[in-house]
Nucleic acid binder design. Structure first.
Lengths: 132, 132
DNA sequence: CAAGTAGTTTAGAACGGTTTTAAAGTAAAA
DNA sequence: TTTTACTTTAAAACCGTTCTAAACTACTTG
């Protein structure tokens, strides 16, 4: 399925701007990025786009499940093109994230989900520091 | 050990402001809170404190290990008086966090830590949504 | 195809949480 | 007591993100 179809399937109009972003992000190579990273990439490809549009687009993509947003206490929002359930290493010094495939972690025992709620995803974060 | 001693042990001068905050936070009852939550609490106890001081103090407390900061993609920083390794439920709608004791989750298999790094803490986040 | 309409993009302003600044104040050391 | 280093403060600055409202564009309907 091409990116135009992906957008349509997600209920999004394939505008020029969304196609530029989809072509950068949805090429099968997983990555982490911020809105600013993406704007730099758009600029250096000879295009340009308002930062507001980039945020709008990332929010729409996220709400449609085309990308994910990572839970991280960094000041800037970090997005992830890997939408499968998976986990992360976090380099606490640099903030860099490294993917951990779901199968690499085995959660043997989980607590009872509070009444009235359902589990909507489990994320494991392994914090790293430089070896001394 | 009283709070004055805790501050001294952590290498922090027990100033009036730090004592006010320590007395609120370090009373053995675990909780999550933001800088603003804390300021409201200080105000309603008849004291007052600059928001800059509150941030300074929370950062120092965190760096000394007296409190933790939670990994969360909320826009405001969330702190936690529970400094033991533990995990969280996250209500995705409200952002509310609920503690999960370390023993309630059993991580059966962990991935290999990247070369040159060491594991400095594992946090599991179980995202919750309202049952339909 | 033309006209209408609903959705989208934009620059710039506004926002909100956090950090910086620089001056005044305080704790500890000498 | 005097000195020194650290701390607090209000206000300004900062920075990532969202809002505004006007211009624009994709799609629908005739």
């Amino acid at each position: 399925m091409n990116n135009k179809e992906k957008l349509r399937n997600a209920g999004l109009r394939p505008t020029k701007q969304r196609m530029i972003i989809a072509n950068i992000l949805l090429n099968g190579v997983n990555r982490h990025f911020t809105a600013e990273n993406l704007q730099n990439e758009i600029n250096s490809s000879g295009n340009s786009m308002s930062i507001a549009t980039i945020y709008n687009c990332l929010k729409k993509f996220r709400n449609c499940g085309l990308i994910k947003q990572v839970e991280s206490s960094k000041e800037t929002a970090i997005f992830d093109t890997n939408i499968d359930q998976h986990h992360h290493f976090l380099d606490e010094e640099t903030g860099e994230l490294i993917d951990i495939e779901n199968e690499e972690i085995n959660l043997f025992k989980l607590p009872e989900i509070p009444r009235g709620y359902m589990n909507s995803g489990v994320e494991v974060l392994i914090k790293l520091k430089k070896q001394t």
